[in-house]
Simulated assay, not measured.
Amino acid sequence: MTFVIRAARDSDLQPLYEMAKLTGGGFTNLPPDRAALKIKLVRSAAAFARSDDAKADDLFVLVLENTATGEVRGTCQIFTHVGQSYPFYSYRLGTLTQHSKELGRTFRADMLGLTTDLEGCSEVGGLFLHPGERAGGLGMLLARARYLFIAQHRARFADRILAELRGIIDEAGGSPFWDGLAGRFFGMNFQDADQFNAVRGHQFIADLFPKHPIYIAMLPESARAVIGLPHPSGRAAMRMLENEGFAYENYVDIFDGGPTMIAKTDQVRTIRDAQPARIVAIDDDGGDAALVARGLLADFRCAYATIRASADGVVLGREAAAALGVGEDDMISHVARA
């Protein structure tokens, strides 16, 4: 059984919607809303169709397809430059130090400041793998395929790249962080705010969010305890990001307090290590486990493969070659699976 990553199409709307209903909330980039998902697919199609490399607010939606059945079993997204259409807000954790000579004491207060520091960065997000496929490294295939796509379209992307991880969500689908901070200003629960944001964007944040720093000590313990922590289901994703060179730099999501991971684009491991090569032969005589990608824009495809070096290029396994739609003399990009 072979899975391949490819560009999303209009016909993928229904499977994307079905997967969106399985996310459990707090997954802004994959809302269980047909109209919002349709808008994403239209926007993605426009990005895939654009041939120039000018800086733009593009969104690319990719899907994981089972080549044997044609079923879509996962998805991920790539944003070229966030904050171009509307501000990209984050909270930045900082410390204010004050000294009282009379008391002979120094006071340090941890604070959350609303910021748009990360505007202009690229973003990887929207990764979701169907619960029935969470084996065989398919989550890693989805994640790393995004970086091979970026490597093959480097001029379209920024010099820094971020990934927002979903924060802690309670059993009722609420967010302790939201309830302890923003919910007090908005008069709506987390689910409503998250859905509103997913469908209509961030402008309401600019209109209503407090602009002054928030003293963390003034928040309830339930909110303080989850700042910068990923949802339990996102811990593996956080480890994958760290393995790629991403780091937590004290930025958190304004809705659920989840961590924002940041890296220099050219230092992301998969992007840095990706190698172009020409296929000189296709056989089943073995090789090293790798991720292999071919094609640009809507023709992009990525899959796991066996690959081995030869004098003039590489030899690719038959199953992967069929899934990728490549043959001898075609060019690919590859990186070690480990």
Rank of each mutant, 00 (worst) to 15 (best):
235 R>F: 07
173 G>W: 10
188 M>Q: 13
178 W>E: 04
179 D>R: 12
201 G>W: 07
193 A>K: 07
168 I>Q: 00
200 R>W: 09
211 K>A: 13
126 G>I: 10
127 L>R: 02
129 L>N: 10
168 I>P: 00
212 H>K: 12
165 L>F: 06
206 A>T: 13
131 P>N: 11
224 R>E: 05
240 M>A: 13
158 A>P: 05
149 F>R: 04
147 Y>A: 05
201 G>C: 07
149 F>C: 05
201 G>M: 09
165 L>D: 06
154 R>L: 14
168 I>M: 05
154 R>Q: 11
226 V>I: 12
172 A>Q: 13
119 E>A: 15
160 R>M: 13
157 F>V: 03
208 L>Y: 10
213 P>C: 07
156 R>C: 12
116 T>P: 01
168 I>N: 00
209 F>W: 10
141 L>V: 09
223 A>P: 09
212 H>Q: 12
140 M>E: 13
125 G>C: 14
184 R>N: 11
195 Q>T: 13
227 I>L: 09
130 H>D: 15
161 I>M: 11
194 D>Q: 08
126 G>P: 08
171 E>R: 14
232 P>M: 12
240 M>P: 00
190 F>W: 09
162 L>F: 02
155 A>L: 11
216 I>E: 06
194 D>H: 03
121 C>R: 02
156 R>Q: 12
175 S>R: 00
152 Q>L: 12
127 L>C: 08
214 I>S: 02
207 D>F: 03
143 A>L: 14
235 R>D: 05
131 P>Q: 11
206 A>P: 00
